[in-house]
Amino acid sequence: MNVSIRQEGLGWRILRNLILLIGIIIILGPMYLVVINSLKSLEEAGQGFFNLPRALDFSNYAELLSKGNYWRYVWNTTFITIGSIVMVLLINPTVAYAIARNRHKKYYNFVYLYILLGLFVPFQVIMLPLTKIMTNLSLLNPVGLILLYGALSLTRGVFLLVNYIEGMPMEIEEAARIDGCSTFQIYYSIILRLIMPMLVTLIIMDALWFWNDFMLPLLILNKSKEFWTLPLFQYNFKTEYSFNYTMAFTSYLMAMLPIIVVYAAGQKYIIAGLTEGAIKG
């Protein structure tokens, strides 16, 4: 691989670096504008949108934190994301393990195909009935949303995990069984450990989905302000701040902040985890 890199043409290297540089500007440019303008007053931003702020003025932040229920929305989003991940971990690997080891039996093969059919169903088909079902079950709340995410996580989870488990050697399991381990013990102390790389990938993908999702919270939680997640807070405040756009920029930054902090701390693992899933899946 090193040889091939060294022999790449100079023209390609220049073009490549130029492309990557432009891309980085297009990605970081908007972020930069959000940060600098969130630190300005409306008047100052009007004088120079691209200028650095004259001073570090956090009054927009103070106002946002004092008036909105920012921490409430952070808590709601965190609660829903963590609760849903727990659901994913409870129901995805168990069913995938049962399917992977019993595919030759009719029932398990049926469950497999039944869940995979979900790959072809666009969300719009279920979204309208779901609002009715959830209303009838009095589940228009975070717990209802967590149950929904659990159910909807199954298509991707089963697809990735069954493939992964079927590619694993059976020897360890067989040895454990001869030693008298029950199926549950094998699952809990062997399988869960062996599928950890794929499970990590799945958790990252699902966590990003739960944290950033707009559509399901809009359908399930929008009516009750106390249940709002960060994306809902963002959406509902867009009119409130439409005339005070530096304030709007502050709210964008605050909405992104938790996930950016997580990303800054764990980007190496997040990217490696997702790449792993892309290869194995």
Binding site: L90, I91, N92, T94, V95, Y97, A98, I99, R101, N102, Y107, Y108, V111, Y114, I115, G118, V121, I126, L130, I133, L147, L148, G150, A151, L152, L154, V158, S182, T183, F184, Y187
Partner: peptide, 18 residues
């Protein structure tokens, strides 16, 4: 055990999806 492993998924998926 295997059958019980499939139950939560099948129930949730049936109600909220199928």
């Amino acid at each position: 055990t295997y059958f019980l492993f499939t139950l939560p998924a099948v129930i949730l998926y049936t109600l909220f999806f199928a």
